[in-house]
Design a protein around this nucleic acid. Structure first.
Lengths: 224, 224
DNA sequence: GCACTAATTTAGGCTAGCCTAAAAAATTCT
DNA sequence: AGAATTTTTTAGGCTAGCCTAAATTAGTGC
């Protein structure tokens, strides 16, 4: 069961689109995320489902979800991705918004040895530069309770937990505003579908965040 | 002119088979080196020659050589390869014989930024762990006069300049014997097509080297 | 429940890069 | 030189993964 670059991309996309829930993922959603046509997705899903063991569970017109084997491979790629992001940031001095693209390319090609050596150099880190947990070598995934910032109650102190890594411009903006993992903050005001007013811990200045930008941010839900 | 992994492999193989000279490289030689059939080589050479600008100069039945553009790309890949080898060895603590395989895979996928950052971390190094010169960023290649050990005169002190990186078992053996770049040595005896007797500087013990192993070794010819 | 729309799948094609088998050219041997 | 051998090229196929266009299924409003 050696997987190709494309297969890895599909598996990771399914994992990430299905969120933490067991939801089935739609062909269209995958097509958009992967930048291919829906017809191509259908073809690939049929192939992945036909593998032995199957990498996905697929019923036509009913979406797809990962099998146990698919799940394992997807998290493996995520581990590669997040270790690489941290490595690029900490060792090769990439900036916050540069790491994603390079990690996305390299994640498919590094060996187990590379993975292990990088993890060792970084001291078996728990999270990547965007605050996402790094799956363990053995496949277990540390649990982290997170809530999208836009769903966080007004007035309740929160700790910024992670930011999406897929949009460099948004990342630069968040960094400029001081919204990085670990930042303490309070939401002062929330206009649904418009914007949020947040304050960073110990600062008086309010920051206005567009919903679009706020959607990139999650806070630590274990601190409720 | 974005090049694929395959194209890069062909260009690098042509570069390395043509030696320093202007020799044309044969289809068979390429096929063997690349692990594909000769018919596949012919097909690829025709494509490379048909590109604008052409990456190779190819006349059927008469072998192939790199064009200026092909040369540029091939050396670029070599720079990637050698920087990666040194990086894997020095930073990620890979052993001498492990670096080649990983570098061979990754050389196709690292960005210019990655290349630059790695070079910076390593202090713009001149040579890789096997003693091969690292081409400069701008495409110039430092000159190094080398002679295969088997052609070095008997009794004349020499400095080991480089070893081939393609055979892990040979590398381990050479390392065990203390034959690493920088080692001083003298050839005491040379039986053509059989073996060499060499002595390391300051050691009395003679080392018997099979021709096969000796062919992996080159010495610094500027010290004649 | 039926008509309309949106989502999905099927059918048929394309390219890159490999393959085998057969043809052609070059080289070597006598 | 001519025959035998080796090298190289041509011809025709295959797979992965993408595409477009057309057909089908699902979902929605009336």
């Amino acid at each position: 069961m050696p997987t190709s670059e494309s297969v890895d991309d599909y598996l990771r996309a399914i994992l990430e689109l299905s969120g933490k829930s067991e939801e089935r993922v739609s062909s269209n959603g995958l097509a958009t995320r992967l930048g291919v046509r829906a017809a191509s997705v259908t073809g690939m899903l049929q192939k992945l489902a036909a593998q032995r063991p199957p990498l996905v569970l697929y019923e036509k017109h009913r979406g797809v979800r990962l099998s146990a084997a698919g799940m394992r491979r997807a998290w493996e790629i995520v581990r590669h991705h997040r270790l690489l992001e941290l490595f690029l940031h900490d060792v090769l001095k990439y900036s916050w918004d540069e790491v994603h693209e390079e990690a996305e390319r390299l994640e498919h090609f590094i060996s187990e040895r590379f993975e292990d050596r990088v993890a060792a150099i970084l001291g078996d880190p728990e999270v990547d530069p965007h605050g996402h947990v790094i799956p363990h070598r053995n496949g277990t995934i540390p649990v982290r309770e997170e809530v999208p910032l836009v769903e966080w109650p007004i007035g309740k102190p929160a700790v910024l937990s992670s930011v999406s890594d897929r949009d460099p411009a948004a990342l630069r903006e968040l960094q400029r505003l001081g919204l990085v993992p670990g930042s303490g903050l309070v939401v002062d005001e929330s206009k649904p579908n418009a914007s949020l007013l947040v304050r960073l811990s110990g600062q008086k200045r309010q920051i206005r965040l567009s919903i679009e930008l706020a959607l990139h941010v999650a806070v630590d839900a274990s601190r409720i």
